[in-house]
Design a binder for these strands. Structure first.
Lengths: 206, 206
DNA sequence: CATTGTGAACGGGTTCACAGCA
DNA sequence: TGCTGTGAACCCGTTCACAATG
């Protein structure tokens, strides 16, 4: 095991391994192996072994991997042993859906605050949240010490809001806005855009 | 230009180029170059030139690329010169949000039908759509000749629904369900899962 | 004896650097 | 002069194949 310089692309696969393992656990399986995991995920067994071996020797020859043990290890590596509070900005339809999404629980996340800049909806309830004014965002978010954000505002507002989040101390932003954000290098940014994914696939359609 | 065997990873970047170009067009810019595009997207200029050169010689030395011309070329390459009908299955919060999302217009897509299996909501209106019964999915979708789907059903239903979509002739599925689908190789599948993206980023947080 | 962990070989994507051209 | 297109070099991730071992 050599901890130094693990490629980002490897890190990106770990959540998928964790997801598959949690499904195996639901199915009451206590052990698995690189072949089974690989088949479920469409990844080669060698790849999975090599990825995991970067972090330690988690398996047993002849047996494979203990499902609960490997889940614990991956949760530790990915820093999701406890729960990250998330600030959600932009309470359109998508923001509403994410605010109410039950899937974050048990995966290391919980929406803690929601914001919008529209006076028409500020103060309204969404599930258990009261929509707060983005004017107060920097103060409220920094005070709460929140480090993770999801951005569901229109493209025209995304850069500005992202800068507020950074000012508030946020270090990881998952943006649904169809625009590349320009932020300090120590802030981690990723994007979700269905149009990009769909256009990728239509290339292969006649 | 050599058309044979263009890596999938290159195809995956083309939608981002198109997105950036369309923003440039909104800003009334008529030409751009690999350096400007690269800076906007966080991609090296050489990468962009090499990617584009796989499909033809679209630029002019000393000038760069014509924005509208390159937009047209990319739209042709990606097969989004006309509009793909999409079938959307699963009318929870996320399904509602996607059904009402205005961002598909002008990017090559339009939601054409929506389905759910919950008797409580079948027949209801969502925007301009009437929620249809998944029992009728195969018939309706194949009759309409729809080739592209978005899946926003619970994980427990995703595989089953995906198989129905395939039976109906769908060849591209964008799934929001947190599970790897097992489908024929000629069906293109991609996933959107915020939890995977968040866990990837929290690895880098203390 | 099934399955891991891993060095070595391999393959392929990215960057380099420059000729070529508007 | 400015910027593209591209062969070559480089770099890095994946696969291979097998020794090690519970």
């Amino acid at each position: 095991m050599e901890t130094e310089k693990i490629p980002d692309i490897v890190i990106g696969r770990l959540p998928r391994y964790l997801q598959a393992l949690q499904r195996l656990q639901q199915e009451k399986k206590l052990t698995t192996n690189s072949k089974e995991l690989g088949e479920r995920l469409g990844i080669s067994a060698a790849q999975i072994r090599k990825d995991l071996s970067q972090f330690g020797e988690f398996g047993k020859q002849g047996t494979g991997y203990s499902v609960p043990f490997l889940i614990n290890k991956l949760q530790s590596i990915l820093n999701v042993t406890s729960v990250w509070d998330i600030v959600l900005v932009g309470m359109g339809d998508l923001g509403h859906a994410l605010a109410r999404y039950q899937g974050f629980a048990n995966h290391g996340f919980r929406v803690a605050m929601v914001f919008d800049n529209d006076p028409q909806i500020i103060g309204r309830q969404v599930g258990s949240f009261t929509i707060q004014d983005t004017t107060d965002l920097v103060e409220k978010v920094s005070q709460a010490g929140i480090r993770v954000a999801m951005l569901t505002v229109p493209a025209s507002a995304a850069q500005e809001v992202a800068e507020k989040l950074v000012k508030a101390g946020v270090k990881a932003i998952l943006s649904y806005a169809p625009i590349t954000l320009n932020l300090p290098v120590d802030v981690h940014v990723d994007y979700i855009d269905p149009i990009l994914k769909l256009q990728h696939m239509t290339y292969y359609l006649d």
